[in-house]
Design a protein around this nucleic acid. Structure first.
Lengths: 198, 198
DNA sequence: AATTCGACTTGATTGAAATCATAAACTGAA
DNA sequence: TTCAGTTTATGATTTCAATCAAGTCGAATT
């Protein structure tokens, strides 16, 4: 997350994206740094049968899509606005220039990449080895702790649809629904008016 | 990858690890930067049933285990030497100091993190959505292109055991063996004296 | 109040990979 | 060359999430 005054100093623009609008496509070349100012963005893939996998969801203050700026690669997934959103956009050369002149900001970016890598490591091993209930609990635990910065004893009102949980955890909606019912029975989560509390 | 002369200038040590020796455990706190000088290292998880998942394999020149140095997190996986290995080890404060004084090296690290993130994004979506054969081909393609830097037309002699492919792709050995036989039939890979050519 | 639409739910069935069992092929050391 | 230990191979069986099919529920709109 780059502070707004610095983004402005380096002439970042703010772009409007409507709900559902695509910010970049899988396999596009990367030319800009993106940071959510307002709204929500998801990064996702579709396989040949149309099954979606959500790589991550990004909220105000989150940057996304940096890796292809720093390595010689294409976007591994598309980015789509989940709500009407305002996104800071800064060209690659300006970003590089910014990071050269502002080492502290560079460390912030490094921290951000590190956290994303941590999330991916977690989910990769979960998806590869664990049962649906375990995957869901791990996902919720990560979101609670690392995205919403809540303590264990605090209540976390999950703002995700069942389908989104499924697409984040590599499962199908029906499986998520059944697993959540089970988790409720086991008192691992609560469900109030269809909303999940964790 | 930090150049050796710079590592030496900042008083990095070289540690010996025997084949099978553990470099750090899952959930350990991170205190050092690691870079392979000679040998091979894997990062892995085991689930409660003993199933292994390999997060990555690292060769000479590769750094590993950086994320917890930059973000306030614990190691999401353990690191184990796959062969007798020599590993550069640099304390966290010295690394931070190094990166502050050598911005170019910081950009190298950023690039490295970005590439790891790319690999993880790829494998996460593969493991969550694709069939065994597809996963294996994607894995091999990534290794050929991004790890061994070979052109499409060149032959890639895969130096992984079936079990390792399974643990990288989230499959079981038997499934990998059967899938590889099928891929051979379909002329997508060749198998010579049990070695896979791609 | 009726209608529409998206999200959630439930049950039945299926299919593909995991599991289990067993053996063959290779490797290297004694 | 024999033996012990890996690694690869193959067949039979099981299992559990995906799939398919058919609802219900709730909120928003007319």
């Amino acid at each position: 997350m780059v502070p707004e005054n610095i983004l402005n100093a380096y002439q970042a623009s703010i772009e409007k994206y409507k709900k559902g609008e695509v910010i970049f496509e899988e396999n596009d070349n990367a030319h800009h740094y993106f940071q959510v100012h307002q709204g929500q963005v998801k990064m996702n893939n579709y396989n040949e049968n149309g099954k979606e996998f959500i790589q991550g969801i990004f909220y105000a203050g989150d940057s996304f899509g940096e890796p292809p700026l720093f390595a010689d690669i294409k976007y591994p997934a598309a980015a789509v606005a989940l709500e009407d959103s305002l996104i800071y956009k800064l060209s690659k050369p300006k970003l590089i220039n910014l990071l050269e002149e502002q080492p502290k900001v560079h460390f912030h970016i490094t921290e951000r990449l590190s956290k994303r890598l941590y999330y991916k490591s977690l989910m990769a091993s979960e998806i590869s080895s664990e049962e649906p209930e375990h995957r869901i609990v791990s996902l919720l635990h990560f979101l609670k702790k690392h995205v919403h910065h809540l303590e264990d004893h605090e209540d976390f009102e999950v703002d995700l649809k069942r389908q989104q949980i499924a697409d984040l955890a590599g499962l199908r909606v029906e499986t998520v629904i059944r697993a959540c019912k089970n988790l409720e029975k086991k008192k691992k989560i609560r469900i109030v008016k269809r909303k999940i509390l964790f």
